[in-house]
Amino acid sequence: MTGFDAVLLSYDEPQADLLHTRLTHVLGRPVKRLHGVRGMRRAYRLTAELVDAEQFFLSDGDFAIDEDFSVGEVEPLADGVAMRVWQAANPVNGLVYGYGGLKLIRRTALREMGQAVDVLAALPGRVEFCRQTAGVTRFNQSPFHAWKAGFRECAMLARGSEYGMTDASAQERIDAWKASSTGDFAAYAAAGALDGLDFAQAVGRDPERFEAINDPAWLLQHFAVLRDEQAVAG
Rank of each mutant, 00 (worst) to 15 (best):
M1C: 08
T2P: 12
T2W: 02
G3Y: 03
D5T: 07
D5S: 12
A6H: 01
L8T: 10
L9V: 07
S10F: 00
S10D: 10
S10L: 00
P14A: 12
A16I: 00
D17Q: 14
L18A: 15
L18G: 01
R22G: 01
R22H: 15
G28F: 05
R29H: 09
P30R: 06
K32E: 13
G36W: 09
R38S: 08
M40K: 12
M40P: 00
R42E: 12
R42P: 00
Y44K: 06
L46T: 02
A48R: 00
A48N: 02
L50I: 09
A53C: 12
E54A: 12
F57V: 12
S59W: 04
D62S: 15
F63Y: 12
D68R: 13
D68L: 11
F69W: 11
S70H: 10
V71D: 09
V81R: 03
V81M: 05
A82Q: 07
V85K: 03
W86T: 07
W86V: 09
Q87H: 11
A88Q: 09
V92D: 07
N93L: 05
G94M: 05
V96H: 02
Y97P: 01
Y97M: 04
G98I: 04
Y99C: 09
Y99K: 03
A109E: 07
A109T: 08
L110W: 04
E112C: 05
E112L: 08
M113W: 08
G114D: 05
A116C: 05
A116E: 05
L120S: 04
A122W: 04
L123Y: 06
F129G: 03
F129Q: 06
T133Y: 01
V136T: 15
V136G: 02
T137S: 13
R138H: 12
N140G: 07
F144G: 01
H145C: 13
W147Y: 14
L157M: 15
A158M: 14
A158V: 09
A158D: 09
E162Q: 15
G164Q: 13
G164M: 14
M165C: 08
D167T: 11
A168K: 11
Q171C: 08
Q171P: 07
Q171L: 13
E172S: 13
E172Y: 08
R173P: 01
A176M: 07
A176P: 03
A176V: 08
A179E: 05
A179H: 04
S180I: 02
S180V: 04
S181C: 11
S181T: 11
T182N: 03
G183S: 10
G183T: 11
F185D: 01
A186C: 10
A187V: 10
A187H: 12
Y188I: 02
A189S: 12
A189Q: 13
G192K: 02
D195A: 14
D195S: 10
L197R: 09
L197C: 11
D198Q: 10
F199A: 04
A200I: 07
V203E: 01
R205W: 03
D206H: 11
P207E: 10
P207F: 06
F210P: 00
E211P: 00
A212R: 14
I213F: 04
D215A: 07
P216R: 10
P216M: 09
A217K: 12
L219V: 06
L219S: 04
L219N: 05
Q221S: 14
A224N: 01
Q230P: 00
